[in-house]
C-alpha cells in the first residue's frame, strides 16, 4: 500500500505549495491591508498545513515520528495564524487605517462607531 500514501502525500504537497503561492499572489494583488490579510492568512494556513501533512504522509511508513511532529506543527499553525492576523487587523484599525469600501452603503463600516467612541473618550 505504499503507493497510496505516496499519492496522497504528493497530492497534498502540490495542493499545499499551490496555495502558498496563491497566498503570496493574494498579498501582492489585493488593494488594502484587510483584504491582503484575508488572502494571505487563509491561503498560507491551508497551504502550510497541507504541505506539512503531505510530508507526514510521505514518511508515514518509514516512521510515525514525522506524522506526530507534522500534526503538532499543523495544530500550532491553525491556532497561531488567525490570531496573528486578527491582531494585525485590529492594530491597523486602531491606527485609523480604515478599510477600503467600494460600495455606497453607509452601514458598511460597523466598527467605526466603536473607534469614534474611543476617540471621544480620549479627548475627554
Amino acid at each position: 500500500m505504499s503507493t497510496l500514501f505516496e499519492i496522497i502525500g504528493g497530492a497534498l504537497l502540490l495542493i499545499g505549495s499551490a496555495f502558498l503561492f496563491l497566498g503570496g499572489l493574494g498579498i501582492f494583488r489585493m488593494p488594502d491591508v484587510y483584504n491582503r490579510l484575508q488572502a494571505g492568512t487563509k491561503a498560507t494556513t491551508l497551504g502550510g498545513m497541507s504541505l506539512i501533512l503531505g510530508v507526514g504522509f510521505l514518511m508515514v511508513e518509514t516512521s510515525w515520528m514525522w506524522m506526530a511532529k507534522a500534526v503538532i506543527i499543523v495544530i500550532f499553525i491553525a491556532f497561531s495564524n488567525p490570531i496573528s492576523s486578527h491582531a494585525l487587523a485590529r492594530a491597523m484599525y486602531k491606527r485609523k487605517q480604515y478599510p477600503l469600501i467600494t460600495s455606497k452603503d453607509e452601514n458598511m463600516d460597523a466598527y467605526k462607531e466603536i473607534s469614534e467612541n474611543e476617540k471621544k473618550e480620549e479627548d475627554a
Binding site: F76, S80, A87
Partner: peptide, 18 residues
Amino acid sequence: LFSSSSIVRSGSKLLFPA
C-alpha cells in the same frame, strides 16, 4: 493605552504552557 483584544489574551493563555 488600552489592553489587547480578548482573542490575543486567550490565545496566548492557551499557547503559553505549550
